[in-house]
Design a protein around this nucleic acid. Structure first.
Length: 874
RNA sequence: GCGGGCGUGGCGGAAUUGGUAGACGCGCGGGAUUUAGGUUCCCGUGACGAAAGUCGUGGGGGUUCGAGUCCCUCCGCCCGCACCA
């Protein structure tokens, strides 16, 4: 038995170097074995990895190492989502060039990832800020443009007047820019859009086929795409009342059945009819201006009252020429959904009800709930949106909602105005086109040239990449590309006259929408992808990352893959076959009396449970132990992966990240938990050492038969093998860890049992030790190599095939069945595995406990579930 | 408001999908080794009870020989979306 401790630090770098030298994680595109593509969401190079990365990449690595052992050709690459704002912020704050800052961060983080011992094919590393990458992105942009999947149009954006840039909705906080704090304005800008809405229906329908995605993510996407079926209805306008003699107003409704409950019409403040009316009415113009000022902040939107302004225009009810409805401009109508206009039926829509209650327009219920008397059915503050029968609706009375919808649609479709029907069926989606223009430097340039004569001209493919200039300054707000003295000046590719480059760059979500495809052949210089290679590797079999990307990144990638298919860059629709969303790493928070936060490293904790007390190491002052929250810089409750790996080793960090909590849930990082993991690595180290001592006397040949102690060891080993394999397949890493503990405990018990054992036991012990090492290898690869070498193998455990279960070892010859009396367990009975039910029943009835319970009476019933349980009903 | 998820010992969590509830880890208690231990090893640890036993998976009800698991209902947490007509 060895007395020394396992020296993780030395061993880990040693094995990492060996893996590296022997290139065992290099993946070949001509490998004939079945493929498996496992991918973790690539990191933004912020400077240092955090515990969330450790968790994410450990899970991916377990899958990669396991699948490799299972005989798959595994693609497990890593790259950098390297464009984005933080690099520009660093440039402004610290006068360092975004490129330099980014590449320094990449180098630092790469070192950290390498010290984790991840089985990555680093030869395929890509960075999205590399012209060798974004060149192809520009090519695809042009191909999409040609295929009609890109569009340039005006759109409302959040504009920060101080930073002079467009902000994403997420970057607007309480109506102010998140950096500048300036009041954000709504501006109309001409921007580039990817026409993701062309795929709304398909993106929605295909969700059903993604059966290896979490239900939650599919639902989130479904809601985001937001399909609704309804009717487009053209209301005639009383031309005497409309500003320029406009004679119709088109609205979208999903409730045509409630048409007879209509009380008003409402249009969006930026509806053309509103603009026309405002031109003749200054008060209305002022109201519209007020609405637009409100438009930016989420918080304001939530609390905003329903406000409207009567334009004086009258609309005519489609079923009654004498019925006139007032047309309001209302602040709650969105221009970019439906037609930007509605008819309001207050009795059955809460918003409309709030509106009429504010403006005294009244309401008429037209759907009566079941078992309610229509005469006494009154709506006051709460709209009724449930089921029922039509009332107060002339020819619809008595119909169900569905029948009424159908009847209204049919009648209006048959009524022509001009040569078009008054109404037509329409499907609407919430999903908007994806605006990708960003007024920023550190992104992929949009390969377009603006020429006064020729208009918008694509950059010819031979001129790609349009490369970012290095000599830029960040000393004034706005886009450095705009300020650059020469970069944007270029000759028009068509007419040769002086023209101007597009200075907007692409949203960084574009970069991450196809990187998984580029990993298939990152060396290709002539095209984004090689069709054969990319179609061989895709889809990603197992994608792993945070739930925060449930919508944007994952939806954009699904769109992009379809667009790549449409332009011949790939041959499939769905990029990710299996998706797993892992939980966060959380940690206790610590706070001084003055409310300031302190880091876990700055304090000392004593006591247990309720009596735990924390004090500041530096001063001894008491520290309040606060809530367990997501690790964040602001709460200072982070733990540095480097420190953990230096103190305990990467294997310990990896093991702890997988233990305890199910991977989809949050895991709490605790010092005690890490120490538990660390203890276990040492226990394994000593356990394998002892097993090797015993195994020394093992015969070379497999013994013909095994005695009881040897058989027990073999059953434990093969049982663990079956359970651990199953748990990895299901990504239940915490269960997997538990089974390995259990197996190790069993081996330990068997080794400390000092009764005399023969060579068959030594042989079984060698087998068990090997299986144990292989089982924990995906989680703790360095320790596994160390132990594998000690088992006097000259091979690497990382290259070993997964051990095979001997199924007969899992089948017991005699089994112990629990015996229940009236559903409560009262005894056990041991019978032969293939015992007949009558024999089992007889054996059970003979048991003392059963006899006692029956008190001499005969049982009402005896239920024997073979291999499972026996229940006696007394 | 709409949609979804969850509720099991002191804590994180297992439970072959209706069949021995509490695997495994942490913590705690006891013992051994140790000059010493925030070391290592062994034993114990759902509650009540001296024991036999009784109770026990958020509360209540139901289906079943049998329910953590299925159904109804109530309560409590968490997450996502939110003026989408």
């Amino acid at each position: 038995m060895r007395s020394e401790r396992y020296n993780a630090r030395a061993a880990e770098t040693r094995w990492q170097n060996i893996w590296d030298q022997r290139e065992i994680f290099k993946t070949r595109n001509d490998d004939p074995r079945p493929k498996y593509y496992v991918l973790e969401m690539f990191p933004y190079p912020s400077g240092r990895i955090h515990m969330g990365h450790v968790r994410n990449y450990t899970m991916g690595d377990v899958v990669a190492r396991y699948k490799r052992a299972m005989g798959f050709s595994v693609l497990h690459p890593m790259g950098w989502d390297a464009f984005g704002m933080p690099a520009e912020n660093a440039a402004m704050e610290r006068k360092v060039h975004p490129k330099e800052w980014t590449y320094e961060n990449i180098n630092a983080m790469k070192k950290q990832l390498q010290s984790m011992g991840l089985s990555l094919d680093w030869a395929r590393e890509i960075a999205t800020c590399d012209p060798a990458y974004y060149k192809h992105q520009q090519k695809m942009f042009l191909d999409f443009l040609e295929a009609g999947l890109v569009e340039r149009k005006q759109s409302k954006v959040n504009w920060d007047p101080v930073d002079q840039t467009v902000l994403a909705n997420e970057q607007v906080i309480d109506g102010r820019g998140w950096r500048s704090g300036a009041l954000v304005e709504q501006r109309e800008l001409t921007q580039w859009f990817f026409k993701i809405s062309d795929y709304s229906e398909d993106l929605l329908n295909a969700l059903d086929k993604l059966d290896r995605w979490p239900e939650k993510v599919r639902l989130m996407q479904k809601n985001w795409i937001g399909r609704s079926e309804g009717l487009l209805v053209r209301f005639a306008l009383d031309t005497k009342t409309s500003p320029n003699g406009e004679d119709e107003l088109e609205i979208f409704t999903t409730r045509p059945d409630t048409l007879f409950g209509a009380k008003f019409m409402a249009i969006a403040p930026d509806h053309p009819l509103a603009a026309a009316a405002a031109a003749k009415n200054p008060e209305l113009a002022e109201f519209i201006a007020e609405c637009k000022r409100m438009g930016t902040s989420q918080a304001l939107l939530e609390t905003a009252e329903k406000k409207g302004f009567d334009t004086g225009i009258k609309a005519i009810h489609p079923f009654d020429p004498a019925w006139k409805l007032p047309v309001y401009v209302a602040n709650f109508i969105l221009m970019d959904y439906g037609t930007g206009a509605i008819f309001g039926c207050p009795a059955h829509d809460q918003r409309d009800l709030d509106f009429v209650n504010a403006y005294g327009l009244g309401n008429t219920p037209v759907v009566c709930p079941p078992a309610v008397d229509p005469k006494s059915f009154v709506i006051t503050d709460t709209a009724y949106d449930g089921d029922g029968r039509m009332i107060n609706s002339r020819f619809l009375d008595g119909m169900t909602i569905e029948q009424a919808k159908e009847e209204v649609a049919k009648r209006l479709e048959n009524t022509k105005k001009g040569n078009r029907p008054v109404a037509q069926r329409e499907v609407n989606f919430r999903l908007r086109d994806w605006g990708i223009s960003r007024q920023r430097y550190w992104g992929c340039p949009i390969p377009i040239i603006h020429c006064e004569t020729c208009g918008v001209v694509p950059v010819p493919a031979k001129d790609l990449p349009v490369q970012l200039p290095d000599d830029v300054t960040f000393d004034r707000p706005g886009n450095p590309l705009d300020h650059h003295p020469t970069w944007k000046n270029v000759a028009c590719p068509k007419c040769g006259k002086p023209a101007r480059r597009e200075t907007d760059t692409m949203d960084t979500f574009v970069d991450s929408s196809w990187y998984f495809a580029r990993f298939a052949d990152p060396w290709l210089t002539t095209a984004p992808t090689d069709r054969k290679v990319v179609d061989d590797w895709l889809p990603v079999d197992q994608y792993i990352g945070g739930i925060e990307h449930a919508i944007l990144h994952l939806l954009y990638s699904r769109f992009f893959t379809r667009a790549m298919k449409a332009t011949g860059h790939a041959g499939l629709d769905e990029p990710f076959g299996g998706l797993f969303t892992q939980g966060m790493v959380v940690h206790e928070t610590y706070q001084k009396k003055d409310g300031s936060w302190v880091t876990p490293a700055e304090i000392r904790i004593e006591g247990a449970d309720d009596s735990r007390r924390a004090t500041l190491l530096a001063t001894g002052e008491p520290i309040e132990i606060g809530a367990i929250e997501k690790m964040s810089k602001s709460k200072r409750n982070t733990v540095d992966p480097d420190e953990i790996m230096t103190t305990y080793g990467a294997d310990v960090a990896r093991w702890f990240m997988l233990s305890d909590s199910p991977p989809e849930r949050d895991v709490e990082w605790t010092e005690r938990g890490v120490q538990g993991a660390w203890r276990f690595t040492n226990r394994l180290w000593h356990l394998i050492g002892e097993a090797i001592e015993v195994a020394k006397s093992a015969p070379a040949e497999r013994p013909a038969s095994f005695g009881e102690p040897a058989l027990l060891v073999r059953k434990a080993a093969h049982g663990a093998l079956a359970k651990v394999s199953d748990a990895i397949e299901k990504l239940h890493f915490n269960v997997c860890v538990a089974h390995i503990y259990e197996f190790a405990n069993a081996l330990g018990a068997s080794l400390s049992d000092k009764t005399a054992k023969g060579p068959d036991f030594a042989w079984a012990m060698r087998e068990a030790a090997e299986i144990l090492v292989q089982l924990f290898h995906p989680m703790m690869p360095h320790l596994a190599e160390e132990c594998w070498a000690e088992l006097s193998h000259n091979t690497l455990v990382a290259s070993q095939p997964w051990p095979k279960v001997e199924p007969e070892l899992l089948v017991e010859q005699t089994i112990t069945l629990p015996v229940q009396i009236n559903g409560k367990k009262r005894a056990d009975v041991t019978v032969a595995r293939d015992a007949k039910n009558e024999d089992i029943e007889a054996a059970v009835l003979a048991l003392d406990a059963v006899q006692r319970a029956l008190e001499g009476k005969r049982p009402k019933k005896v239920i024997v579930v073979p291999q499972r349980i026996v229940n006696v009903v007394a």
